[in-house]
Structures are given as C-alpha cells and as structure tokens.
Design a protein around this nucleic acid. Sequence first.
DNA 1: GAATTACATTTGTATATACAATAGTTGTAG
DNA 2: CTACAACTATTGTATATACAAATGTAATTC
Lengths: 158, 158
Amino acid sequence: MNVEKIIKVKKPLPVETKTILHLLLVNQRISEFTAEALKPFDVSTQQFNVLRILKGQNEKAANLSTLNERMVSKMSNTTRLVDKLILKKLVKRTVCESNRRKIEIFITKKGKEELKKMSEVILKTEKKLLQNISTSEMNELNELLNRLNTNNSEEQKL
Amino acid sequence: MNVEKIIKVKKPLPVETKTILHLLLVNQRISEFTAEALKPFDVSTQQFNVLRILKGQNEKAANLSTLNERMVSKMSNTTRLVDKLILKKLVKRTVCESNRRKIEIFITKKGKEELKKMSEVILKTEKKLLQNISTSEMNELNELLNRLNTNNSEEQKL
DNA sequence: GAATTACATTTGTATATACAATAGTTGTAG
DNA sequence: CTACAACTATTGTATATACAAATGTAATTC
C-alpha cells in the first residue's frame, strides 16, 4: 500500500507528509488487528490497556489519576472504562481511606486470568503485524519512534 | 517518554510489544497536534482528509466509495462527514446522472481556499512532529513503515 | 417484464471519545 | 471554625465511530 496511491496526487508529497501518513496507516492497521484479536474477550483495546497497567502494579492499587497518566485516553473516559470493567468483574473499585477523594482500583483474580489469555493473543497479533521486519529493524524503528515521542521542545509553539 | 516507564513492568517488554506501543504513542501525538492545528479552521482531521482527497481529484468528481477507499474511516461515516463539509460550504454533492445510485462530490472554491491554508499549517505541524529526525532517517522510517503496511500474507489467519 | 440479486449510499443504534460543568473531599488563610 | 481554593472523580453533552439494517437504483435471470 503506497501512500501516493491513496491520496493520488500528481506531485510527490513532501517527505514529512508521507511519513505522517505512513504512521497513520500503520496505526489504523494496528487498531483493526488489535480490536479483532480482543473481540472474543469482549473488551476494547483501552480496557485491555487498563488491565495491563493494573497488572503492572503488582497487587498495589492504582487510583484513577495514575491510570490516566499511563493511558492515552482522557480522564472522563477512564471513569467509564473502569465502570465497564467492573461490570465484567475484571476489576474492583474502592474509596481510598486516607484520602476519600481518591479511588483505588484493583485487578481481580478473574481479571488476571483473562488478561493472561488476552496477552498471549495480543502478542501473536503484534508478531503478525511486525512479521515483515526483522528484530534489528524493530530496534532501529524503536529508536526512531522514541525520538519522535520525545518532546525536546514542547514549549516552542508553532 | 519511555514505554517501559508508561506500563511500568518489571520484566522488559517483548520487542514487538514495545514497538507497537511506540507506534501507538507516536500516533497519539500526531492526532493531538493535528487536531490542534486544524482547530482554527473548525474541521476535523477526517474532514481535512476528505478535502485533500477531493483536491487530489483535480476537478474530477469523487463518489463516496472512492472517498471511502482512500480514507481510513468506514463508509457510514463518510456520508455524515460529507454532510458536515456541505454545511460549511467546502464541498458540493450531486447525484450522478449516468448511475443514480452514485453520488458525486466536488470540492468548492471556498473549499480549495481553506484547504490551502490548512495544508500550510498541517505541513508546519508535520515538520514539528518530525523535527527530531533527519530526512534520511525519515526515508529509512518510511521504508520500514511501508513494509508494515504491506499485507504480504493477508490470508494467513492468526 | 416481473422477480431477484447486487450495488451505492444512508440511517439507526450502540458505544466511544472530547470537553466543560459539577460534586464531593481536603487543605489553608484569616 | 468558616470561607475559599485546590484536588479527584463523575456526569452531561456534543460529536465521532463501528456495525447492521434499510433505502433506492441498476443489472440479471427466468
């Protein structure tokens, strides 16, 4: 899938535009494959991410702000995401005793079991998505992407 | 921004997982910057993409399926996306005479003018997003991403 | 040429997301 | 200790998206 073919322009696109489009297309592909892989578990990608973060906490509770920091999505969303996970009994929510404004969220036993299965499927999906490039190329790619994610001049406004 | 810091796992992540997470993070960044850049024009990223595709048609009309093929989003959406652009008088819609099932969509004069301004801002944004890597690195990145977008084994199910 | 199938788009519905406003809790200044 | 500001989470609302069903048109088959 060539980017120029998609937008079908006469002039070649600036290399920056092309790069961004490529990134968006890859992302689209990732989203589709991931959603498909998680469908049997009846959780969304975001819900999977919440579970993964909670697992990463190793029994320690996470409050909403923590979850939110580590997630891409926005706060208002996180509340409702957790609501869904509670309905499925994958996580638990309690009010923090020392600061009643805070909410503590834990992954349940069922949550851990499900997450384990999901993780296996997701890893397979990731490998499939990346099957066209070698490990050393992945490292190369990672290095480049890492630099793109680094805000070395966040303040410098457009 | 290091991926391991975000998920906070003890064990290092498989390189595939890390790569996918990096891609998702970069995408998140692109979405944010792009939405921000387009805000003054009161169009969404998707609406901007539609305009860009129509412009690429060079006066020729595009029907909905064409738009849809070249866009990331799904069909049902495209109808409503175009609705919005019509409200803003950036595109026009007519029924195709030779096949009344088809809908032809054109970019208007106003649409072209606005698109020009948007494109300038977007290009600046793209350069800003990519400022941390050189042109040759962009080419390298493009080559890798292009391979990821190539379905060389679409049929091979997980 | 009537019935059936396929095509192109639209609509309905459920869910997801973004942003702003609100509620409940805690900290702090006078 | 009361008033006010700050913090944490939730809710409301508008918009976006995904998927399935429905609409209207054209092509095909009998």
